[in-house]
Design a binder for these strands. Structure first.
Lengths: 145, 145
DNA sequence: GTGTTTGCAAAGTGTTTGCAATTTA
DNA sequence: TAAATTGCAAACACTTTGCAAACAC
């Protein structure tokens, strides 16, 4: 008995519509990735990690397709990118306004609810520019040994 | 004796001591880079940009040395890295507590004084981790045409 | 002299792209 | 069948590294 009983009859219910709404054909690869990403609680993934995960589920998806899909999902508003590392891209399924802890030792991201932190007095923007987003990252080290 | 004069007679005055204090030999390459970085107002650079700049000054420094030097300076507390792009590293000569505007259209960083923005109510950290830094990035698009 | 630093070129990492083959509608 | 999507392998951008030659003290 697995914990996925409630999904086993119509495993892609909802997800198919979600992809269609985004104008993306519900292909085998996109469905597998979307299911990993959107079935369950919010997640933070890198392309490599998501690729490993989908492979472990015995679904063959190329790494190139994982990259393409992550960007399509981002463009469609299903994901957002979180910049915390100058060497790799992270994606977040939580599209609501919030911030992050980033553990520099293990590369793990954790959400911070917007109520848990307050940012006030946003300064005047440089001439002729418009604010597209505010990112707050609390960098921590886990130093766990 | 003080090293307060920034005139052209002793172009490296101060910088040499600064490198020595950091335990770094004042080589031709390090002096040239340090001068570009620390003579004048605070700056934000990428490795490529700094390399171009030093080359324009007719000082031959390899890109590998620029990378190595940026990291040595960072380790020594002369620079800090600012993470705003998942594809390249930015370095900031301003070591005091402050935040940034990042223009996503032209890759330009601008400092925000800590008084111009207030962050309150930092949440409890995950179990067993310690805060190493708080980064606030206001992403803007210049959309200048 | 001796240990440090440099430059080169090669290697490494993460990511994107061109295009033929495959799949979807 | 027409258009979208995939996978591969090659190309890319940025960064790091091994090592012999050059340099600083």
């Amino acid at each position: 008995m697995t914990s996925m009983d409630m999904n086993s009859e119509r495993p892609y219910a909802g997800i198919i519509e979600r992809l269609k709404e985004a104008g993306l054909r519900p292909t085998r690869q996109r469905l597998a990735l979307a299911r990993i990403l959107f079935d369950g609680p919010d997640r933070h993934v890198t392309a490599e990690a998501l690729h490993s995960e989908v492979m472990e589920a015995n679904i063959r998806v190329s790494l190139a397709t994982v990259y393409n899909t992550l960007h399509q999902f981002t463009r469609s508003g299903l994901l957002r990118e979180v910049v915390v590392d100058s060497g790799r891209a992270y994606f977040d399924t939580n599209m609501s306004d919030h911030h992050h802890f980033f553990d520099e030792d293990n590369g793990r991201l954790t959400d911070i609810a917007p109520d848990d932190i307050t940012l006030s007095g946003v300064p005047t923007l440089p001439e002729g520019s418009k604010l597209s987003r505010v990112d707050v990252v609390l960098r921590v080290s886990s130093a766990d040994k």
